[in-house]
Amino acid sequence: MKVKTGPEKIIPILAAYPEAGRDSLIPLLQDVQEAEGYLSREAVVAVGRHLGLPAGKVYGVATFYNQFRFSPRGRYHIQVCRGTACHVRGSGTLLGRLERELKIAAGETGRDGLFSLEVVSCIGACGLAPVISVNGEYHGHLTGDDIPALLEDYRNRETDEDD
């Protein structure tokens, strides 16, 4: 067994891939993200060490795929559908507005940890296009101007829950 050091949570994941080579990279990254919610820097390094790959290469592969994220999800995880139907109905404008309002780019998490933003290809709700999902709740037929109120609503839920 050649599992070396790494964040505690991922040691058992690495252990499930004994003597693995570079072809195990993507499944391993998927398992790590499943467990941790994202790929931490430490996890990327540890996965690289386990497979004998440089961190830069692991990072290069991981950034190729939309499914991998490099910061933890926010309390409210927003998925913006960029499928064909949503695209023609203006999902690009929605995404731009979300990025401006939240001051983060797609794939990032705000500093307060409240919101994170992700672009997905199709969430199967073309009838609601353009549609976004917040922690699995769908919001359809949106325009850019709907965004501030929507975000405010989630922010208020946050304070309500704190009370």
């Binding site: 440089p54 961190a55 830069g56 990072y59 290069g60 950034t63 190729f64 795929y65």
Partner: peptide, 14 residues
């Protein structure tokens, strides 16, 4: 190594 994809492709360190 190469990072990212498509028009976002870049050469980057880890």
């Amino acid at each position: 190594d190469f990072s990212g994809r498509g028009s976002e492709t870049r050469i980057a360190a880890a």
